[in-house]
């Protein structure tokens, strides 16, 4: 047994779980859970939404690593929110855990089906077909009066896994979002450093070679698509619960565009990037809405052009640039 030890380190890649990213994730988890209760109401809400959006963008990061940009993430974001909302709206279920499970399940189930189609598409055709699917949902919701048509409907929560939220509702919901985001980020980090995760980058670089090594490009894309949809669904459920309202706008293409924006802004260099990007996005948006509502998109567009031109790896590449050089 002992003879084998030195070669063991040679045979296996360094075990994920103790690297820098994991440490940073755990650090972020502890800090967020600790400062949560003392945050002012608006800051907690903003952070809550940011982390939920970060979870959605985390799924986009996986697709972008695979070489795909979706202009239809809103489909799953909206499905997740409506799934959570519908439980409350139609069945009176107000348990956070059950609602989020439904968000993820519905989003993933739809993605499993659509994935069979989308896994064949690349580049702008992938972007366009995913856009079409999200606009189909938008078109349906807008005309479905049982679901409130263009206005959507409200929802509220009472328990989490059977435990009553009571007066701690805001704190507990915030902690829930923090924990969901943490688990998503950690899971994604481990996934990306696994063989399956490396395959994503390989597919982005050269599909032909991947097929000529004997792996199925379509299967990898399909799996990654479902994972990304599940994360978008979770994010949608969290936002729906946080805001207490869902509406069809969540499936409109401009919502997906905002996710794309955050993903480009943040970069795909780390699982932490989407969250950082989402926090910056939400912060700037909140202040812009307050002080200069008609220049918010101007700021976004200009920032996006600057990032594309001067920081193709996104904001995150500022941190990693030194290492690469």
């Amino acid at each position: 047994m002992q003879v084998n030890k030195p070669s063991q380190s040679l045979k296996r890649p360094p075990a994920p779980g103790v690297d820098r990213t994991t440490l940073m994730l755990v650090g972020a988890l502890v800090i967020l859970l600790a400062v949560g209760p003392i945050l002012p109401r608006w800051a907690m809400f903003m952070l809550n939404v940011s982390l939920s959006w970060g979870t959605v963008v985390l799924g986009m990061l996986l697709l972008m690593r695979t070489g795909l940009v979706s202009f239809g993430t809103g489909l799953y974001y909206c499905l997740g929110a409506y799934a959570a909302g519908a439980l409350h709206h139609f069945y009176g279920i107000a348990d956070v855990a059950v609602m989020l499970a439904a968000s993820v399940a519905v989003a993933a189930a739809v993605a499993v089906v659509l994935g069979f189609l989308l896994a064949k598409y690349r580049d702008i055709f992938f972007a366009m077909l995913s856009l079409a699917f999200s606009m189909i949902l938008y078109g349906l919701l807008v005309k479905t009066s049982a679901l409130g048509s263009t206005d959507g409907f409200g929802l509220s929560v009472k328990t989490i896994a059977g435990f009553p939220l009571g007066e701690w509702e805001r704190n507990l919901m915030f902690s829930t979002t923090v924990v969901v985001a943490f688990c998503a980020a950690l899971g994604m980090h481990r996934y990306l450093s696994s063989h399956q995760g490396r395959l994503a980058s390989a597919i982005r670089d050269n599909e032909l070679r991947v097929e000529y090594m004997g792996a199925s490009v379509r299967r990898v894309i399909h799996v990654n698509y479902v994972i990304s949809a599940a994360l978008a669904g979770a994010g949608g459920g969290l936002v729906g619960i946080a805001i207490g309202h869902v509406d069809p706008e969540m499936a409109f293409w401009t919502t997906s565009g905002e996710f794309v924006f955050i993903a480009i802004l943040a970069g795909t260099g780390s699982v932490l990037a989407p969250f950082l990007g989402a926090i910056i996005f939400e912060t700037v948006r909140s202040f812009a809405y307050e002080y200069s509502p008609n220049t918010w998109q101007l700021i976004l567009g200009t920032t996006m052009l600057l990032v594309i031109m001067f920081l193709p790896g996104g904001l995150w590449s500022i941190f990693t640039r030194r290492k690469a050089a």
Partner: peptide, 28 residues
């Protein structure tokens, strides 16, 4: 003109940025 030669998807993002900018310029 600064963007020619980039990936088609990147060009989509560039024009998306232009869309955002024009939205607000129109409002202004």
């Amino acid at each position: 003109r600064l963007m020619y030669g980039k990936d088609e998807v990147v060009l989509v993002l560039v024009t998306y940025a232009v869309f955002l900018i024009l939205e607000d310029m129109t409002k202004l």
